[in-house]
């Protein structure tokens, strides 16, 4: 029996900071950052937003599109590297807010930027195994870049949620593939506030090796070529990397632009390729085939092939589109406000 996405949703915070505003503070050259990283601005979470709040909003959008009773959801997996608690699950709060408790399995996933697709993979597999009628996988992050570090220009916030099931499918999962190795390109040790990375090493032996190998492996496994796909979406640590990956694999710009959110959204880490997929589903037509490849440092990629069904047109308008949220009256903030919102200012202990 076919298994796939029955409901999807994304959430984008309203606040933004421009590359120029960050560059100004650190004496950096904004035009070269904008050109080098292909980034213009990024989303910023307010102090009352975190991985849990964004996960709830994205999941509510997914439930609206799925049109199901949330009590039928058998599992919720929230993938993030910025879970609000070190010890206490994010998933139970999301489950409670949706009305999916108490007969449910919850776990929080972590794998740098790959945690979201990881949750999707496990949720999809449980439905495929016949363990439950519906399962929910979420990718969400409010990631931090150290002040002045290159990551500060990209680390942003957002979430995407996917409900998998066997009835009223909007995108059938035709195949999956995973590719991982031990690669120390990016990490954060316990009790550390900011992550560290290995500079240029995060490119060729890390992002490109895993993304390209996963995409090629998946296409070989499913006997497909770029010509078989209408759309493709890759993890977006900046604007440049996914475009180069697409080019090397032979996907035209026109196939990746719809899901290419990073130039104005930034890198939403675990939310990145899942949010790109949601933007594609917002406009996809029945029969369209989509290639999705995530990436998480440490390192690995999950690959999925989705085939959009006739039912997509019935659900696209049931919740806010991802690009509409991205473009709807953004609130621009200065670096001082950004530093306050992100807890970068040292204050007196309460």
């Amino acid at each position: 029996m076919e298994v796939g996405i029955v409901g999807y949703g994304a959430y984008v915070p309203r606040h933004r900071i421009k590359v120029e505003e960050i560059a100004k503070v650190w004496g950096a050259d904004a035009p070269s950052y904008k050109k080098g990283l292909m980034l213009r601005e990024k989303s910023v979470p307010t102090p009352d937003q975190d991985t849990i709040t964004m996960s709830v909003e994205a999941a509510r959008h997914a439930v609206r599109r799925a049109g199901i009773d949330p009590a039928l959801i058998g599992a919720i997996y929230v993938g993030s590297e910025s879970h609000p608690y070190a010890v206490k699950p994010s998933g139970t709060v999301v489950a409670e807010a949706l009305g999916a408790t108490p007969e449910i399995h919850c776990a929080d996933m972590e794998f740098a930027c790959k945690a979201g697709s990881e949750g999707m993979f496990v949720a999809l597999s449980l439905v495929k195994a016949g363990q439950m009628p519906y399962a929910l996988g979420i990718g969400a992050d409010t990631s931090q870049g150290a002040p002045g570090d290159a990551l500060e220009y990209s680390a942003s916030a957002g979430a995407a949620a996917y409900i998998f099931g066997r009835e009223k499918i909007v995108a059938v999962c035709e195949d999956t593939y995973a590719y991982m190795t031990d690669t120390p390109d990016f990490w954060r040790r316990e009790y550390q506030f900011y992550p560290r990375h290995a500079g240029r090493y995060t490119g060729e032996p890390a992002y490109f090796k895993h993304v390209l190998s996963c995409a090629r492996g998946l296409m070989a496994k499913s006997k497909t070529t770029p010509a078989d796909f209408r759309w493709a979406v890759f993890h977006q640590p900046n604007g440049k990397f996914p475009m180069r990956a697409a080019q090397e694999l032979g996907f035209s710009k026109e196939k990746v632009e719809q899901g290419w959110l990073s130039p104005t959204l930034g890198n939403t880490y675990s939310g990145s390729s899942p949010m790109g997929l949601s933007a594609i589903l917002d406009v996809a037509k029945p029969g369209d085939r989509i290639l999705m490849v995530s990436y998480g440092s440490g390192a690995g990629s999950d690959g999925f092939i989705w085939r959009v069904t006739d039912h997509i047109t019935a659900v696209q308008g049931l919740a806010p589109h991802t690009r509409a949220q991205l473009e709807d009256r953004p609130i621009y903030i200065d670096y001082g406000t950004y530093a306050k919102y992100r807890g970068k200012i040292r204050k007196l202990a309460e």
Partner: peptide
């Protein structure tokens, strides 16, 4: 209505 943090009991 949107789901948000309301307050926290310190750090």
């Amino acid at each position: 209505l949107e789901f948000r943090r309301l307050q926290q009991d310190g750090e």
